[in-house]
Every structure is written in C-alpha cells, then in structure tokens.
Design a protein around this nucleic acid. Sequence first.
DNA 1: CGGAAGATCCACT
DNA 2: GTGGATCTTCCGA
Length: 208
Amino acid sequence: MNRFRPLPPSFYRRPAEIVARDLLGRYLVRELDGERLVLRLVEVEAYLGAPDRASHAWDGRRTPRNESLYLPGGHAYVYFIYGMHFCLNAVTGEAGVGSAVLLRAGAPVEGEERMAENRGWLKKVRPGDLAGGPGKLCRALGVGRELDGVLLDRPPLYIAKGEPEAAEGTGRIVASPRIGVDYAGEAAAWPLRFSVAGERNVSRPWPG
DNA sequence: CGGAAGATCCACT
DNA sequence: GTGGATCTTCCGA
C-alpha cells in the first residue's frame, strides 16, 4: 500500500488549532522534477483569521497577496515575506474564514540530498536544520508563489497520513506562543504554536 | 507619496 | 546582539 496517501480536504475543514495539532507527525510531500521530497511535520502554528491580530486575515483584511487564505480548507496559502522568503500554510475551516496553519519545520524522511541542494544560498545546512524554519522549509522543498492556492490533496504538493502525534495523545505535543508576532497585542501570547517534544528539527527550542 | 515594519534567515561582532 | 536583504502592506502627511 502507499505510505503517502493524501489527507482529504475534509481533514482541514475544522478549527485551525485542531488541524494544527493533528498535522504534527504527518508527511508533507513535494513532487519536484519527478523526485519525491518528504518531510515529517514537527512544528506548526495556527492562525485564526479575523479575530487574530497576528493573522494576515485579521479584521477581514483582503489583499492580492492573501487572497488564497480565503479559499476553503485544504488549499495552500504561500506568501512572500521580508523580500526574501516564502512561507507555506494549509488553509483551514470553511471558505471565507481566513484561518490557516503555518508549516514551520519538518524532519527529512525522503529526498534529503535534493532538499539540501535546494537550500542553495540559504546555506549552512547543518544536521537537524534542513527545514527548521518556515523559510527554510519552503526553500528545501522548492515551494514558491506558483503553489499558492493549489489543493493539498494531490501532487505536486500534498500532506499524507504519516505518523500523527495527536493519535498518541497530547503527551508529545508542546504548545507555546507563536514566533515573531510580538506586535499582535493579546494574540501574541495565545499558545498556538505546536511542536513535537524532543524533536531537534525545530526552528527554536521550547520555552523554559 | 514616503517611511516603517513584517508569520525570516544569515553573516558578523 | 546587530544589520542587511528589498517584497508587500499599512499608515500618516
């Protein structure tokens, strides 16, 4: 049987924080030039949409850049940030909500060599840091603007069942405040960053 | 219209 | 710990 069967769109049509936890341990699969690149998701963040000041959809904001954030759950939202980097999200909930899960870090499962090549000028590819951060993750997988708005249930980009952490209970899942959102008032403290305890392939250590 | 800052990362001190 | 890369959006003049 296929180890990399995609999750259906219905998986994503739930609240972002539920989907975020459920995504930990899943396989993020990218097919690139006939090659299969696979990361096991170890760090994600939930963004809640209009009520969440840290979200690109805060207060219902709509711009050309974030348009795909309002698609139905199960689509990709890829955006360009700091004039340098792409970030990949899985849109969650129903169409028009604007909630999503940012895929922050993954551990290599397949295609590690190619992913290291993709990193290119984002060099310093050290063990445990191949995709340890949202910009690095996109760079490693060759994810760019052309994948903004695609459905995540088929090649060339999908998320497969993998080895979900949530299925083991919450013992291995750590919740903490999101990274780089200090400007977001109360929302900055919401514990919407989720990572796998003990994983070294994360963007930053855990608090405490 | 201009300046500032951002869901980032790297090089250097 | 600081500065730079330089796209996109926001806000004040």
